[in-house]
């Protein structure tokens, strides 16, 4: 298969970027999108030009490293896959493909198609954890968890933090990501202990980092490679409102364990 690629090139975070056009011929229809880019980069190296920088890691669709905004959709034209799992047969021979980095104030471009997604790490650091002291292994059935909650929690925990929700959202909002992280803990007894503090801290951090606001367009859930539902956003809103209204004032802790 032959393609014309229009790819965003940007030397560094401060430089002004622009689109460059590349022709690529003889791509197998079974090759993945990233393998196609590998071939382009080989060409670039042979020509003595700078290869195109893009994020990738496991190439199995589970690490959340790959990104790319392809022809107006994060992770390209296929549903519920990451870019690494996108096959070239999803395109037509001779297609022009426009490849852009995620665009968000909170995800600055580092170089070419690679963006800095540390903002997500900062949100997790703000509260996306449970504080458990190490100790003996508890008995598996000591804490009963309803099957529905375990399933919903697992669905939310499937989030790989790739940032497609932010890229897809017309407001560059990170609500789906934060909602998934809030939900998967809030649904389990282990997460409930810190639920009110967690949701407030994570939402505050999200707002601080310059993500947009949620206007319930549903673009995020349509593009999420893990098909995380916006029901989670409603759950987070519920948790957040409940926490803001119902949570007690912070008390100075007596310390100790």
């Amino acid at each position: 298969m032959d393609f014309t690629l229009k790819i965003w090139r940007q030397k560094n975070a401060k430089a002004k970027g622009k689109f460059a056009t590349y022709k690529i011929n003889g791509i197998s229809d079974s090759s993945s999108f990233l393998e196609m880019l590998d071939v382009v980069n080989e060409q670039q190296v042979i020509k003595g030009e700078d290869p195109i920088v893009f994020d990738h890691d496991c190439r199995e669709g589970i690490c959340g490293a790959c990104s790319l905004y392809i022809n107006g959709r994060p992770h390209g034209p296929d549903d519920a896959v990451t870019t690494c799992q996108l096959h070239m047969r999803k395109f037509k021979d001779g297609d022009t493909i426009v490849i852009e980095p995620w665009r968000s104030k909170a995800f600055p471009v580092i170089r070419d198609l690679m963006v800095d997604r540390q903002a997500f790490d900062k949100i997790i650091q703000a509260g996306g954890f449970i504080s458990v002291n190490t100790g003996g292994i508890p008995d598996a059935n000591a804490i009963l968890i309803p099957k529905e909650n375990a399933d919903s929690s697992m669905d939310a925990a499937a989030c790989i933090g790739c940032g497609a929700c932010v890229a897809a959202c017309k407001n560059a909002s990170a609500m789906l990501f934060v909602a998934a992280k809030v939900s998967h803990l809030a649904l389990l007894p282990q997460g409930k202990a810190e639920a009110t503090r967690r949701v407030q801290a994570m939402v505050a951090k999200m707002d601080e980092l310059g993500f947009g606001n949620c206007t319930n367009t549903g673009a995020c859930e349509a593009e999420c490679p893990k098909e995380i539902s916006i029901d989670n956003i409603a759950r987070m809103n519920r948790e957040y409102l409940g926490a803001k209204i119902g949570a007690q004032k912070d008390k100075v802790s007596g310390g100790g364990f």
Binding site: K105, S173, G212, A222
Partner: peptide, 18 residues
């Protein structure tokens, strides 16, 4: 929301949304 995406996409808005 506009400020949250200072650089716009060249090709945008092909996601399914209401």
């Amino acid at each position: 929301n506009w400020l949250a995406r200072p650089v716009r996409y060249k090709v945008a808005g092909y996601s399914h949304l209401s």
